[in-house]
Simulated scan of single mutants.
Amino acid sequence: MKNNTIKYLVLTTITIILFALYYTYKIKNDGYQDAIIFEKKINEKDNTIKDRETFYQNIILATKRNENLKLAENLRLINIDGDTLLAKDVSFKNKIVLRYSILNCSDCVDEEFNILEKNKSLFSDNLIIMTYHENLRSFIMDWKKLQKMGINNVNLYLLVDNNIGIPLEKENIPYYFYLGNDLSMTNFFIPLREYPHLSNNYLKHTFQNFFN
């Protein structure tokens, strides 16, 4: 009888210890998971703040020395048919422009093409692309790429010289701007491949502001 009592007490004690260890682990584990979730939320908030900071820093950089400069009327371009034109002879007024060069980061340019594809319902003939290629063949290949992506309502122009005469050209990066009725350039934006949603936001808000 005495032995049974001792066994019972030992088993009871072991059971209590096991339950205590289990609940201690569970509390710690739940607390750890809560800490992970909390840290994730903090990081997401920090990333959102950083995105906004990056967005506004890009706007400041792009607009500081370029805002309200005018596109040169005698800027030479070649259309997809191979005709050489002057900017003053082309219907460039009241357009959103994507400017890029074959010398820019190719992945960055491809990312902007993908963004244009996602937003192609926004524009009809109010978006143009000014680009630079070292030969017509490469220029036409980009045009065909856009056609395959269903972006067939955008006019593509090849710059004879890889420069449109503004300070931002020195950065050797793709960028957007709005071209007004007097050929003044405003609303500059420098896209970042790491933050494609910023380009999406720029296009949506710019089209809403100027064309709706």
Score class of each variant (00 low, 15 high):
residue 5 T to E: 06
residue 107 D to T: 11
residue 135 N to S: 00
residue 119 N to C: 08
residue 23 Y to R: 09
residue 131 T to G: 07
residue 206 T to E: 06
residue 176 Y to Q: 03
residue 189 F to Y: 15
residue 196 P to Y: 03
residue 125 D to L: 08
residue 205 H to K: 02
residue 59 I to G: 09
residue 147 Q to P: 02
residue 66 N to V: 01
residue 6 I to E: 09
residue 113 F to Y: 12
residue 152 N to P: 02
residue 165 G to Q: 12
residue 197 H to C: 01
residue 204 K to C: 00
residue 13 T to I: 12
residue 130 M to F: 12
residue 40 K to A: 05
residue 151 I to K: 10
residue 55 F to H: 15
residue 112 E to H: 03
residue 144 K to V: 02
residue 16 I to Q: 10
residue 110 D to K: 13
residue 30 D to E: 06
residue 194 E to V: 15
residue 132 Y to M: 07
residue 132 Y to T: 02
residue 132 Y to I: 03
residue 68 N to E: 14
residue 89 D to C: 08
residue 11 L to E: 05
residue 84 T to I: 05
residue 143 W to T: 03
residue 14 I to Q: 13
residue 19 F to G: 04
residue 76 R to P: 00
residue 60 I to G: 04
residue 91 S to E: 12
residue 53 E to T: 13
residue 205 H to V: 01
residue 44 E to Q: 14
residue 178 Y to N: 09
residue 195 Y to W: 06
residue 86 L to K: 10
residue 84 T to C: 03
residue 192 L to W: 15
residue 16 I to H: 07
residue 56 Y to P: 00
residue 15 T to M: 15
residue 3 N to A: 13
residue 54 T to E: 11
residue 152 N to R: 15
residue 103 L to V: 00
residue 152 N to D: 12
residue 81 D to Y: 10
residue 45 K to V: 13
residue 71 L to N: 08
residue 208 Q to R: 08
residue 19 F to L: 12
residue 98 L to C: 11
residue 182 D to L: 07
residue 131 T to C: 14
residue 49 I to M: 13
residue 67 E to T: 10
residue 94 N to A: 05
residue 89 D to W: 06
residue 86 L to E: 02
residue 77 L to D: 06
residue 152 N to W: 06
residue 133 H to N: 04
residue 148 K to E: 12
residue 78 I to D: 02
residue 145 K to W: 04
residue 28 K to E: 01
residue 14 I to S: 14
residue 173 I to R: 11
residue 30 D to L: 01
residue 131 T to E: 06
residue 120 K to P: 00
residue 124 S to K: 15
residue 163 N to Q: 05
residue 60 I to A: 09
residue 60 I to W: 05
residue 41 K to W: 04
residue 162 N to G: 07
residue 11 L to Q: 11
residue 134 E to P: 00
residue 134 E to D: 05
residue 159 L to S: 10
residue 202 Y to R: 04
residue 152 N to T: 08
residue 98 L to A: 07
residue 185 M to R: 10
residue 51 D to Q: 12
residue 195 Y to N: 08
residue 117 E to M: 06
residue 166 I to C: 11
residue 75 L to I: 11
residue 46 D to A: 12
residue 108 C to S: 13
residue 137 R to K: 12
residue 171 E to W: 03
residue 99 R to T: 05
residue 76 R to A: 13
residue 1 M to T: 10
residue 20 A to P: 06
residue 178 Y to A: 01
residue 24 T to R: 12
residue 96 I to G: 01
residue 99 R to H: 05
residue 188 F to L: 11
residue 172 N to G: 00
residue 209 N to W: 01
residue 84 T to D: 09
residue 7 K to D: 09
residue 92 F to G: 08
residue 199 S to V: 00
residue 211 F to D: 03
residue 120 K to S: 08
residue 104 N to C: 04
residue 61 L to S: 13
